[in-house]
Computed example of a mutant assay.
Amino acid sequence: MTEMSATRAREMMKSFWRVQRVLIRLMHQTAQQNDLTLPQLHGLMMLNEQGAITQKELVRRTRMPKSTLSQSLDGLVERGLIRRDINPDNRREVVLTIDQSGKQLIDEIEQQEEGTEQQLNQILSHLDEETYRHMIEAHQQIADGLNEGFTDCEGGCRHD
Rank of each mutant, 00 (worst) to 15 (best):
V19W: 14
T151K: 07
I136F: 06
R83S: 00
D89V: 11
W17D: 12
E117I: 02
G156A: 14
Q29R: 10
V95Q: 01
E3A: 12
N87G: 06
V59F: 03
T2M: 07
S67W: 08
H139E: 15
E49M: 13
V22Y: 14
M4L: 10
T131M: 13
E117N: 03
L38A: 11
S125K: 03
G145T: 11
Q33F: 05
L124W: 02
T2V: 05
Q29W: 08
P88A: 04
M45R: 15
M27N: 06
E108P: 02
K103R: 14
S67T: 14
Q20Y: 09
R84H: 00
G115A: 08
T30H: 08
A9I: 12
P65V: 05
G75L: 02
G51I: 05
V77P: 00
Q112R: 11
A6R: 07
P39N: 08
G145A: 10
L105R: 01
R133D: 11
M13W: 15
S67R: 08
M46E: 11
D152S: 10
R60Q: 15
L76K: 00
Q29Y: 14
Q104R: 07
G155T: 12
V59D: 02
E137F: 15
N48T: 09
Q104C: 03
S72V: 04
H28C: 09
G145V: 06
G43A: 09
H28T: 07
L69W: 04
G149V: 09
D89A: 14
M12Q: 10
F150H: 13
Q71W: 11
R63V: 09
T97Q: 04
K103A: 09
I53N: 01
M64S: 08
W17H: 13
E78A: 10
F150T: 13
G115T: 04
K103Q: 09
M45L: 15
R92D: 15
D85Q: 01
P65W: 04
P39R: 07
P65D: 06
L58G: 01
A143E: 14
R21D: 04
I24G: 08
L120P: 02
E154C: 15
N34G: 08
F16E: 14
E11T: 15
A143P: 06
M1W: 08
V22C: 07
L120I: 10
S101V: 14
Q55I: 01
A143T: 10
T131F: 13
A138F: 05
H126E: 13
Q20I: 04
T97C: 03
I98M: 01
R83D: 00
H28N: 12
D99F: 00
A143M: 13
R10G: 05
T62G: 07
D152P: 09
H159N: 11
L81I: 01
G102F: 02
I142Q: 10
E3D: 08
A52E: 09
K103G: 04
T68G: 05
L73Y: 00
D85G: 00
L73W: 00
N34H: 13
T7C: 08
V22L: 12
T116W: 01
R79F: 01
G155C: 12
E117Q: 05
P65T: 06
D144G: 07
E11C: 13
V19E: 14
R91C: 08
W17N: 12
L124R: 06
Q118E: 10
R79M: 03
L41K: 02
G80F: 02
L105I: 04
G80Y: 03
S125I: 04
E129V: 03
L120V: 10
